[in-house]
Design a protein around this nucleic acid. Sequence first.
DNA 1: GGTGAAATGGGAGTAGC
DNA 2: GCTACTCCCATTTCACC
Lengths: 157, 157
Amino acid sequence: MSRVTAVNLDEVDWRILAILQAEARISFKELGHRIGLTGTAIAERVRKLEDEGVIEGYNVNLNREKLGFPVMAFLKLRVNAEHCKHLREQSIALPEVIEMHRVVGSEYYILKIVLPSMQHLEAVLEKFLQFGAVDVSIVLSTTVDRKRLQKQSSETR
Amino acid sequence: MSRVTAVNLDEVDWRILAILQAEARISFKELGHRIGLTGTAIAERVRKLEDEGVIEGYNVNLNREKLGFPVMAFLKLRVNAEHCKHLREQSIALPEVIEMHRVVGSEYYILKIVLPSMQHLEAVLEKFLQFGAVDVSIVLSTTVDRKRLQKQSSETR
DNA sequence: GGTGAAATGGGAGTAGC
DNA sequence: GCTACTCCCATTTCACC
C-alpha cells in the first residue's frame, strides 16, 4: 500500500485552489488580482502545484440532464472473488459507469452510474447480476455535489 | 418535478466536450487545431454550450491524498422525516461531506465524505447517528473516477 | 519568495465576408 | 464557418528587494 504524504500548502495556495475549483479557466493575471499578487507569482505557484501532483488536471463541469443522462444511481455489488477481474473490465468498458470504488467488506464494490432513462437500468443491471448480488439506489435529487476541498483544522473535530 | 430536455449536440460538440473534460484549460486555438476548425469557431460553440447550460463551469482536479484527505467513505443514512432538514444543513456545513444524494426508499440518503484520517471518522459518524441509522462503506481503492460522459447510442442496449 | 519592466509569441474577441 | 485585425495575456528573463 503506497503511503502518500500530504504536501505543505500555505494560505495563498489554498486560496488559489479555492478559486480554481470554481473557475478553472480564469487567467493567472485575474487570479493574482483577486489574491493580491502578480500574475507571474501565481503562475509559478500553480506550476509548482501541478509538478507536485496536487493539481492533477482541469475538468469541465457538465449538465447530465442536458446531455441526455437524467438518471443516476448507485450500485453496491457483492462479487465472488473469481469475478472481480471481469467486473473491473466491465466497469471500465461501460460508459454508464462513471465511478467504481472497492469498499471494506472483502468483496464489495460501489458503482456510480448514469443512464439516458430508467429503461436502460434493467439492461445495465443484467450485466452485473451475473457477477453477484446487486443493491440499487436510484438518485432522486442531489443536495451537495463536488463540494470544494478546503483547509480543515488539524484537530480531530 | 422539473423536466429538463436534452440539448441537441452534433459530433463536433461531443468532440469538444470530450477534450474539455480532460483538459479544460486548453486554448480555443489548440482545441480547434485538434478538431480541424479555427479557434474562433470553437470559441463560439463553447460559448453556446455555456449559454445553454450544458457547460456549467470549469474545475480543477485535485489529489485528495496530497491535500490531506486520504480517507474516503460512503454513508447510507436512514433518516426520520423530522430530521431531514437538519441533515441537509449538516451536510452543507460540514466540509467533510462532498456529495449528498437523496435516493429511493422514502428517507434514504447517500453521502460521500473525505477525511484526514480514520480517527476523524468517528467524530463525523457521531454527528449523523443522531438522525438515524448509518451504514458505512470505507473506500479501499478507486478503479474508475470521473469517467467522461460520452455520446451513447440511443437504443436500449 | 516576491516585484516590476521589457520583449516575444500566442490567444481572445470583433467585424466583415 | 473563415480571415484579418486589434488587444490582451502568458511566459521568459532581467535587475532588484
